[in-house]
Design a binder for these strands. Structure first.
Length: 292
DNA sequence: CCGACCGCCTGCCTGC
DNA sequence: TGCAGGCAGGCGGTCG
């Protein structure tokens, strides 16, 4: 599931259970995530307080009283669940510390009384402890492009990042060095919203000498609008992904093109049919008529 | 340097 | 019903 809107939704869900709270106990049930958790992972968390919970692109960043930052990524299938009360949760999760379901790999028992479970079937997710004063040098974060919802992300910046790029606009927007936090779904949605073809060469969104960056402007506005709407809807829920409280995100109902192959284009007056193509080994959905 | 491709790992859906 | 094959929201590494 997790692209920027889902990670932001997770961050907001975890905040009340974790911010200002201490790790009372940390259970590592399976440490071989994307990279193996260090042996002393649980020990380095125990007794420390979460002083803040932030997000950079698709990474969650928990600031700890020890001076470390816990950097977490959900990969393709990772999710967090918060359990406040004893008993069943969605018929399969329990607050009881001895009971777990498949793929519950890490459990944080917080001083708030809540337990926070990291579940990840495919184990593409990751956790890493990094000293805060070395965060700038952290390879996972170092090459990331601008935050798409930040004020500094504008048409000029996007045009510059795409300058000279021979690759498709779709591939460029998926490149986290160009803009950080978009994934396959929101790239498709943003391109539709900005009426730009995913097949267009990335460099062509910039206006040539003197021309305005009209396409880049439109694309930046589309990216921001789609992400903001998705966050507002609590992210999207595909397969069995849910928010930290078990609720479903709602934005999947608002997809205009993603996974809508063969459906009529939703642009008023457009007679196009949503098409699926494969770019760089991944599905792209778009309207061949109104996305130019 | 850039861009295309592979692999990681599991679950689910489709078609035979 | 069973099984093989394809596909999935990400990203780091390698190769040309």
């Amino acid at each position: 599931m997790p692209e920027l809107p889902e990670v932001e939704t997770v961050r907001r869900g975890l905040e009340p259970a974790m911010e200002g709270e201490r790790f009372v106990k940390v259970d590592v049930r399976r440490g071989d995530l994307r990279w193996p958790l260090p042996k002393d992972f649980a020990q380095r968390l125990k007794g420390k307080t979460v002083t803040g919970l932030g997000r950079r692109a698709k990474y969650l960043l928990a600031d700890l009283s020890s001076g470390d930052v816990l950097v977490m990524h959900l990969g393709m299938s990772g999710s967090f669940h918060v359990f406040h009360e004893k008993g069943k949760h969605l018929g399969r999760y329990y607050h009881d510390r001895s009971k777990h379901v498949a793929h519950d790999h890490v459990v944080f028992h917080m001083s708030s009384g809540a337990s926070v479970t990291f579940n990840d079937p495919r184990r593409f997710g990751s956790m890493k402890l990094v000293a805060r004063d070395k965060l700038d040098a952290e390879p996972l974060l170092k090459g990331l492009g601008p935050e798409p919802l930040g004020n500094e992300f504008d048409a000029a910046m996007l045009a510059r990042a795409c300058h000279g790029k021979k690759t498709s606009l779709k591939a460029a927007l998926l490149d986290q060095r160009v803009v950080a936090g978009l994934g396959n779904i929101y790239v498709c949605e943003a391109l539709y919203c900005g009426r730009l073809s995913p097949k267009r060469q990335a460099s062509t969104i910039a206006g040539r000498n003197g021309e305005s960056n009209e396409r880049a402007e439109r694309l930046v506005e589309a990216i921001k609008a789609v992400l903001q709407a998705a966050i507002k809807a609590g992210g999207s829920s595909l397969r069995d992904h849910r928010q930290t409280d078990g609720d479903l995100g709602m934005f999947q109902h608002d997809f205009q093109v993603y996974d809508r192959e063969g459906e009529p284009c939703r642009t008023p007056g457009c007679k196009g049919i949503v098409k699926r193509i494969v770019q760089n080994g991944r599905s792209t959905f778009y309207c061949p008529i109104c996305q130019k």
